[in-house]
């Protein structure tokens, strides 16, 4: 096995990086993949909470990088799914405790043993972002259909290209079909037109995400919620499958209908 390293990033905070990472990890693991998540947000860790693994942390990323534990000891196994692991961030240190080359070395060590390494990047464009991006094979940029989030996504995509990690792929999170239809929210078409990158997922706004995040049980576990389905579709697309985008509106002539047509192969 030679894992692909996927970094989830956004620039702006609060757009759903951690939720996306957790749900993609769960979805991939549910689809039979062996997955390790790494929380890159040293000092402000969240991924352990969202995955419901907070109370099982003994060693963390900084312990691992500084040689106080072995790789296996820092990998927390999720007992709900066969092959899902988490390497949590240290909460009592800061970003400078780890360097980009540490991250590359760590990922190279894990690579032979798993299928996917998912890195949850912190917000911002500083050290934590650079640490997270350094080992990446694929970069997923999460944005919301809001002008400020799109601006930051644009900046991040530029930085990813400058690091020669591009082209980044885009996840538009928290799309509200009703607001979009009324014209009160940015249309995913507008977002894509500006960012001009490949779209890999549209995640609808979904109350169940909030509930599941608080319970430490990502929506991708159960099969009913729209967001859960959308995340599982992203996981399938990551594995190279062609999956049509969800129709979030009853009327097929709505923006998602147009959207799906625009996303046919051949579009840049």
């Amino acid at each position: 096995m030679a894992a692909k390293v996927v970094t989830v990033t956004s620039g702006k905070g609060g757009v759903g990086k951690t939720t996306t990472t957790a749900n993609l990890a769960v979805a991939l693991a549910c689809q039979g993949q062996k997955v390790v998540c790494i929380d890159g947000d040293i000092g402000l860790r969240n991924l352990d909470v969202v995955l419901g693994l907070e109370n099982r942390i003994v060693y963390d990323l900084v312990d691992l990088v500084e040689g106080r534990c072995r790789l296996r000891q820092a990998m927390i196994k999720d007992k709900r799914i066969p092959e899902l692991y988490l390497i949590p961030a240290a909460q009592t240190r800061d970003k400078s405790a780890v360097s980009p080359s540490d991250m590359v070395r760590l990922c190279d060590e894990i690579r032979p043993e798993v299928d996917w390494i998912l890195i949850d990047s912190p917000a911002g464009i500083e050290r934590g972002f650079r640490n997270s991006i350094a080992p990446a094979d694929i970069v997923l940029v999460v944005t919301n259909p809001e002008v400020s989030a799109v601006r930051d996504a644009d900046r991040i995509i530029g930085l990813v290209e400058a690091e020669e990690k591009g082209p980044a792929r885009l996840i538009i999170n928290r799309v509200n079909p009703v607001l979009t239809k009324r014209g009160d929210m940015l249309d995913p078409d507008d977002v894509l037109e500006l960012l001009a990158v490949e779209l890999i997922g549209i995640i609808p706004e979904d109350e169940s995400v909030v509930v599941s995040t608080n319970r430490g049980q990502p929506v991708a576990f159960e099969g009913t919620s729209k967001a859960g389905v959308a995340f599982r579709n992203v996981a399938r697309r990551l594995q190279g499958e062609q999956v049509p985008f969800l129709n979030l509106q009853e009327n097929n002539n709505g923006f998602f209908g147009r959207f799906t047509r625009l996303l046919k192969p051949g579009r840049v």
């Binding site: 464009i125 601006r151 930051d152 644009d154 900046r155 530029g158 001009a196």
Partner: peptide
């Protein structure tokens, strides 16, 4: 993209978009 800057005393020709920022 946002955050990029081109500065010169001469002329500039961009083959591509100039995004906000």
């Amino acid at each position: 993209r946002s955050g990029f800057k081109v500065e010169t005393r001469g002329h500039v020709v961009v083959l591509g978009d100039v995004n906000p920022g």
